[in-house]
């Protein structure tokens, strides 16, 4: 990475010439009691891609992302971020990643501004740098007017946004965002998309998980369909959807069909 050089043209099938992946998962597996949540999942996320991970509820998306980011120790398999093994060298790997976990609390007795500052200082950043970036992030995410409000008093969407700011503060090379758009209003969502797209354009890598197929189809350049703890399909969005819309392709892959039979009484009033 010391010498700037033009990226080789992307040719499907010739993986030798492709740049080193930003995140490489190999054979990840996790069992909770008797239930296998992730079942030997392998996935390569190319550097500089906007990668979507879609799957039904309980597919193992959150478990996979937790194992990829050092929050949950896998039973088997490895996760490598830009050549650094997450589980052998966790401190180095975590410097490269910005993480937005889903379903965890925040230190919500801090104000929004304090929380983001806290995240920056925990990363060992300089006070002045932190102050500047916090101010910019709060403005960019439209939270400046609520910077002094306790996070516990935030709405769900604001809480999501402040958590995102905490994940961005140290300018990571890879962003792993678990359900970043859940309960975020459309204006803020467009805002966040703009930020992420500029980030990808300048060489960063984003991995998002989502249920919203339309959003993934419009926003991401790569996508992986996950169900039952395995990857059913992965590649560029065009490759995966293969002519149809991502939603149709997803339902086709995951199965289960569209069970709209019955419920006749619902049409009788």
């Amino acid at each position: 990475m010391s010498q700037p050089h033009p990226d080789p043209p992307f040719v499907p099938g010739t993986s030798d010439s492709a740049p080193a992946p930003a995140l490489s998962l190999q054979g990840l597996a996790k069992r909770f009691g008797g239930k296998v949540a992730v079942d030997g999942l392998s996935l390569d996320v190319p550097a500089g891609s906007f990668y979507g991970m879609v799957g039904p509820n309980g597919a193992g998306k959150t478990t996979t992302l937790s194992m990829a980011t050092g929050l949950l120790r896998p039973d088997f398999g490895t996760a490598v971020v830009h050549g650094v093994d997450v589980w052998r060298h966790p401190l180095e790997a975590k410097k490269l990643m910005g993480i937005l976990p889903d379903g965890v609390r925040l230190f919500d007795r801090l104000t929004g501004e304090q929380l983001v500052t806290y995240a920056g200082l925990l990363r060992g950043m300089e006070r002045d740098v932190v102050r500047e970036r916090v101010a910019e992030l709060l403005v960019a995410l439209d939270l400046a007017a609520d910077g002094g409000t306790l996070v516990v008093d935030y709405s769900a969407g604001m809480t999501k946004k402040i958590a995102l700011a905490s994940a961005l503060i140290h300018a990571p090379r890879v962003l792993v965002l678990d359900e970043p758009f859940e309960s975020v209003d459309p204006v803020s969502a467009a805002n966040i998309r703009g930020i992420l797209e500029r980030y990808v354009a300048s060489g960063g890598t984003v991995i998002v998980s989502s249920h919203v197929m339309d959003l993934v189809q419009r926003m991401c350049d790569h996508v992986a369909v996950v169900a039952g703890g395995r990857v059913l399909a992965a590649g560029t969005v065009e490759e995966v959807r293969n002519g149809s819309s991502l939603e149709e392709r997803f339902v086709e892959l995951v199965g289960g069909g569209t069970n709209t039979e019955g419920l006749e009484w619902l049409r009788t009033f």
Partner: peptide, 25 residues
């Protein structure tokens, strides 16, 4: 009530290190 930013409180006072930040928090 909404409150604007600008009040870092203890985070401004204590050293800007991980230990200092955790103490402040």
């Amino acid at each position: 009530a909404r409150k604007g930013s600008g009040k870092l409180g203890l985070f401004r006072v204590l050293p800007a290190t991980p230990t200092g930040a955790i103490t402040a928090r």
